[in-house]
Simulated assay, not measured.
Amino acid sequence: MTSNTQVALDKEELRTLIAHILELDVQEVTDDADFVADLEVDSLMALEIVVRLQRQYGVKLEESDLKHVSSLPQVLELVSGKRAAQVAS
């Protein structure tokens, strides 16, 4: 298995995971939905997302990491970047 395969994430799998955490329909977690403004993510939900992403994808995230992301594509980029950094080290 190459490092690219290890780092690749499935956006739809991530969308489903976030929808499950937030107890939303998957269709509500659109690419342009803002987590706070549109999906009403508060700090407790953000912490739950961080914990679940760490477990699911084996990355080390801080709650502050999620403060810099506000949409699904940004979470995908964050987690992919963290995984790539782990593979490279």
Rank of each mutant, 00 (worst) to 15 (best):
82 K>D: 07
63 E>P: 15
28 E>M: 06
89 S>N: 06
69 V>K: 11
65 D>P: 12
16 T>D: 14
30 T>Y: 02
36 V>R: 14
28 E>W: 05
7 V>N: 15
71 S>E: 08
61 L>V: 11
35 F>Q: 06
31 D>I: 14
58 G>Q: 04
42 D>T: 08
43 S>D: 08
45 M>D: 14
59 V>Q: 05
6 Q>R: 15
80 S>F: 03
36 V>T: 05
2 T>D: 15
5 T>E: 10
55 R>T: 05
66 L>H: 03
82 K>M: 01
27 Q>P: 04
77 E>P: 06
39 L>P: 05
44 L>H: 03
65 D>Y: 04
7 V>C: 11
11 K>S: 09
33 A>D: 09
13 E>I: 09
38 D>K: 11
75 V>G: 03
29 V>F: 09
80 S>E: 13
12 E>I: 05
89 S>V: 05
25 D>P: 00
77 E>I: 07
47 L>Q: 01
59 V>N: 13
9 L>A: 05
73 P>S: 08
35 F>P: 03
75 V>F: 01
51 V>M: 10
55 R>M: 03
46 A>M: 09
43 S>T: 00
13 E>W: 01
5 T>R: 14
51 V>S: 01
16 T>W: 07
20 H>R: 12
1 M>H: 14
45 M>H: 06
62 E>F: 13
83 R>P: 09
39 L>M: 07
66 L>D: 08
17 L>C: 13
62 E>Y: 01
78 L>S: 05
35 F>S: 00
60 K>D: 13
38 D>R: 07
16 T>E: 12
36 V>N: 09
43 S>E: 05
88 A>L: 01
48 E>R: 14
30 T>H: 00
40 E>C: 03
28 E>N: 12
70 S>C: 07
7 V>P: 10
4 N>G: 10
53 L>V: 04
58 G>C: 08
50 V>Q: 11
48 E>L: 11
44 L>A: 04
23 E>W: 03
79 V>I: 10
75 V>C: 03
